[in-house]
Structure formats: C-alpha cells, structure tokens
Computed example of a mutant assay.
Amino acid sequence: MNETFTDEELPAVLDELGVPGIFDVHVHFMAPEILAKVWAYFDSVGPLIGRPWPITYRGSDEERVERLRRMRVRWFSALSYAHKPGIAPFMNDWSRGFAARTPDSLWSATFYPEPEAAVYVPMLIADGVEVFKAHLQVGNFAADDLFLDPVWAAIEDAGTPVVLHAGSGPAPGDHTGPASVESVLKRFPGLRLIIAHLGTPEVEEFLDLADRFEELRLDLTMAFTGWFGEALPDRLPSRLRDLQSRLLFGSDFPNIPYAYAHQVGSLVRLDPGEEWLRDVLWSNGAALFGKQ
C-alpha cells in the first residue's frame, strides 16, 4: 500500500483497507475563546513546544467538521482539557452543546482535581457523556491527586473511557510520566484509560503498564510522524503488534503542523499489516465506544 497520499485521497485508502471510515479518539473542539488561546500559544511557540508549530486546520467549527467528514472520519472526539480550577463546568457546558449539534462527535468532557469534580463528573456520566479528557502536563496535576479519587471511582464503575495526556512529551511537567498513572491503576484497575500520544517519550513504560492492566489503551496521536517526542525504540513495532486490540487512532486535529493524511501514512509506513491498520483506524474505537 502506498504510504504517501493526500487528505483528498484518504477515502480511497480506506476503501482499499475495507473499513467504513476512521474512528479518531483524539480530536479537539473547544469553546471559541478557549481555542483562540490555544492557537495563540502555538503561534507564539510556547515553552512546551520550543519550535514553530503551524496549525494546519483553522476555520470555524462547521468548516472543520466538514473537513473531517470529507476525509471520512466517521466518529471523532471533541476534547477540551481543564487547565485550572473552576473552568471545567464552562468547558463541559460548551462541549454538551457541540455534541448535541454534531451527531458524529463523541460527547466529550473534562475534569480537574477539585472538590466539585466529585459532583459534576457523576452527573455527566448519568447524562450519558461518552469520553473524558485530562492533561497532566497542562493542568499541572498528578493522576493520583486525592481530589480525583471519587472521580476515578465513578468513571471506573461506569466504564467511560478517558483520554489521558500523561507522557512527558513535548516537554516534561511536574507530574508527567507513568508513576502517578500506575498508582491510580493499582487502586482502580478497571479504568479505561487511553494514554495519549503513546505515552511519548515514556512509551516502553506505558506499554509495560498495558501488559499489566488489561483495560489500559494507548492512542497513536502524532506517533511516527517525526513531530512529537524522541525517537521511538527499534523494537516498538513488535510490541505494537502484540497490543493490536488496545491501540486507537488519534490525530490531534486541528492543532497539527502537517496534513491529516500524514498521520495515517506514518502508520502505513510501519508495514504492520492490513488487519492491524483496520483495527487501529476503525474497529478498536468502534468496539470501545459501541459505534458502527
């Protein structure tokens, strides 16, 4: 299979693989004022980036949704991540509205280690939220913060997936890395955590956790694109084949410095086999979230 193709050619690639589309668990749609600040950070070469990072997909929410649909991204998340106390409810209210008007988007929400999270997270679960996002690096908190104990308990009981940025890429934070994640999983082993960006650069350590905790998953957002984190270990492809059923496709759309198709092509270039690609691009996400 040709590993070089454009966004416009992506549907033909999916046809060749025999999948109905892409299930992308790592897409960002945020309240306009929040997204403007995120883009301003990237445009200013913020300290966690350290190099120019041109955002490929700007425009309105409607334009970006239509772009995903043209590439045949059948399902996608709409992740926001709370970076300080008190802001999660505002973000969650906006995300609720976005999900209501965007039927192919997973209803997404966020939380922060604060007393109120023990109230608003169970309420969101009861209302039917489909995925959470938390960012240890940007939020500057540990996964095992005591305020999160009732949050993890509620999420584990519900089986709601959580996309968790816990790796130390693109720059280490005070609480990044696998230690606090392992601490949480020892107490809540049924959590359906999805480690973002393959846990880069602590990839091997997070894969080791996946060997021990059967509900732990990883997304491949920006992995193998040459833009995120350190060089990946030579033996990584064989480990990724072993964990085929627990790897999920992610893109970080729209905040990526290259075409969407480049992420897909970077996985094709690994030559993992068509069954692996079908599972990662579609089947694993569809099964986890119960979508068709």
Score class of each variant (00 low, 15 high):
M1V: 12
N2W: 01
T4I: 04
T6C: 06
E9H: 11
P20R: 15
D24K: 11
D24E: 02
H26I: 10
V27P: 13
W39V: 09
A40N: 10
A40D: 14
S44A: 08
V45M: 08
G46Y: 01
P47F: 11
I49A: 12
G50W: 08
R51C: 13
R51V: 06
R51W: 12
P52G: 07
P52L: 09
Y57V: 12
R58C: 02
G59F: 06
S60K: 03
S60M: 10
D61P: 02
E63G: 08
R64L: 03
V65I: 14
V65M: 01
S77V: 05
K84T: 00
G86S: 06
N92V: 02
W94T: 04
F98N: 04
A100M: 01
A100H: 01
T102Y: 03
S105G: 01
S108V: 05
T110P: 00
F111G: 03
Y112V: 00
E114V: 01
E114C: 09
P122T: 04
M123C: 05
M123R: 04
D127S: 05
G128Q: 07
H135Q: 04
V138P: 00
V138I: 01
F141Q: 01
L146T: 14
L146D: 14
D149Q: 15
A154N: 14
I155K: 01
E156A: 12
E156K: 15
D157Q: 15
D157K: 15
G159H: 13
P161Y: 10
H165R: 07
P170V: 03
H175W: 12
A179D: 15
V184P: 10
L185C: 06
K186M: 04
F188E: 12
L193D: 02
I194F: 12
A196S: 14
A196N: 07
H197A: 05
L198W: 10
L198M: 06
G199W: 02
T200E: 08
V203E: 12
E204P: 00
F206H: 08
D208R: 05
A210D: 00
F213Q: 06
E215R: 13
W227D: 15
F228G: 14
G229N: 09
A231K: 13
P233W: 09
P233C: 09
P233T: 05
P233N: 15
D234Q: 15
D234V: 15
L236R: 05
L236F: 13
S238T: 13
S238V: 11
R241V: 02
R246T: 07
L247V: 14
F249P: 15
G250R: 14
G250L: 04
D252S: 09
F253V: 06
N255K: 14
Y260L: 10
Y260R: 01
A261G: 08
A261E: 05
H262Q: 07
H262P: 12
V264S: 14
G265R: 04
L267G: 08
L267Q: 07
V268C: 02
L270H: 15
D271A: 14
P272V: 07
P272S: 04
W276I: 00
L277M: 08
L277H: 03
R278P: 04
V280Q: 08
L281N: 03
S283G: 02
G285I: 07
G290A: 10
Q292M: 05
